[in-house]
Design a protein around this nucleic acid. Structure first.
Lengths: 224, 224
DNA sequence: ATAATAGTGTCTGTAAGACATTATCAA
DNA sequence: TTGATAATGTCTTACAGACACTATTAT
């Protein structure tokens, strides 16, 4: 009994970033069937002989398809079943990554498209569902953690960071409370002397993640 | 290129319950190699020809190994890699289930053991790690949801429910605040006239989940 | 009556949001 | 000077925890 059937095992990655103050996902043109030449989540087979585990596979696939290693990468959820892939019963271990938009937009990678998560058309497989799960995840974690800071690049002003949080959460935030909470989180430090002039008004102080938090999320006891 | 290697695909289930006011996990004696006759998480191969998806497989395996369908079952996390199973590169989609202890303890299922999550010995595979992830999950969700109610059975007193929440969270709760929050959640209703006498003192009012919440979690904006 | 726990009312400190004011730039 | 946004101070309200008190049972 119990002879396992062959199951297609893949990894898909939801790479999120902020463009024009909107939360966007990175799509990649598929280079083979099924759905050849269509936009879909970057993904690929697990290579059992090469990848130590799925996280390893996600890193490899991200490098191949986007050329970068995002500062934040975590497992999202696994999508399975007979119906989601025309090739048959499949497992896709989905990952969830955040990156500063400039890193992608500057590299001008030809096969990639950036699309707002609230303006997606119908995608192959169950990729719409996977992206919805990623948006849920970032919404949730943005309420009580420093997660959105990974979308902000090296240095950033507090007004811009607030815009990023708002894009993640899908709602406006109270300025004073937001600043109190960021202060309470304690992950930011002002960059001495560095400000950002953005028009005919007082320039904003620039901040950066304290080095000890560049690879570590900080959580709040109470949310934003 | 890209010819997928065979990968072992399984489902493992962390079935949690409260026994003696402690959070416990259900272990099952393995009936085949590897680790035959050792206690481990109930699990099994995905049957591609039989299971529509992994949730389906989890339900089937739960029925086979425990004989019951818990009121709460959700995907936990997927554990993968070359190192976790002596048979080779494997994927285990782990699920997380809650059940009223009486349902297991009364059925006297011979192959099952109930063990407190903070008194586990070393288990086969990476099952300790999987259980740790489940405990993390329930800790987290217990802070702001009605999740622990699924551990409480049909009817229960508020003092008992508080004990259950405390076992999930691993810390004592403030009585007045706990009751305020349960009231705010609005998932409970008093069972008219039904009380529980537990010694030489005032008996406790019994409550039950409102029927509309028996299959639906309720979340708090702010935690407990 | 007493002991023990169930259940509730009130007070207080804290934290979040509302509002207002000051700061600093470009034009 | 004006207009725009940055940044901060103050007030109000809401909520969580502390404490105290009442309720109800068995012995």
């Amino acid at each position: 009994m119990d002879i396992p059937q062959p199951i297609i095992s893949t990894v898909d990655i939801v790479l999120l970033l902020i463009k024009d103050e909107r939360l966007c996902v990175t799509l990649s043109k598929r280079d083979k069937d099924p759905y050849e030449n269509q936009e879909a989540l970057p993904g690929g087979y697990i290579h059992a002989e090469e990848d130590r585990d799925c996280l390893d596979a996600a890193v490899r696939i991200l490098r191949q398809k986007t050329g970068l290693l995002p500062p934040y990468l975590e497992q999202l959820k696994t999508f399975t079943g007979a119906a989601r892939d025309p090739r048959g019963w499949s497992i896709s271990v989905a990952y969830f990554a955040l990156v500063d938009a400039d890193l992608i937009l500057s590299s001008a990678n030809p096969g990639l498209t950036i699309c707002p998560v609230d303006a997606l058309r119908r995608l192959p497989f169950d990729h719409n569902e996977i992206i919805a799960a990623a948006v849920d995840r970032i919404r949730n974690k943005s309420q009580y953690s420093s997660l959105p800071c990974y979308l902000a690049g090296e240095t950033f002003s507090l007004p811009r960071l607030q815009k990023i949080y708002e894009a993640c959460l899908g709602e406006a935030l109270h300025k004073v409370s937001f600043r109190r909470k960021m202060d309470e989180l304690g992950v930011l430090e002002a960059v001495p002397g560095q400000t950002e002039s953005a028009g005919a008004h007082r320039p904003a102080q620039m901040y950066r993640l304290k080095s000890e938090f560049k690879n570590q999320l900080k959580l709040l006891v109470r949310g934003l």
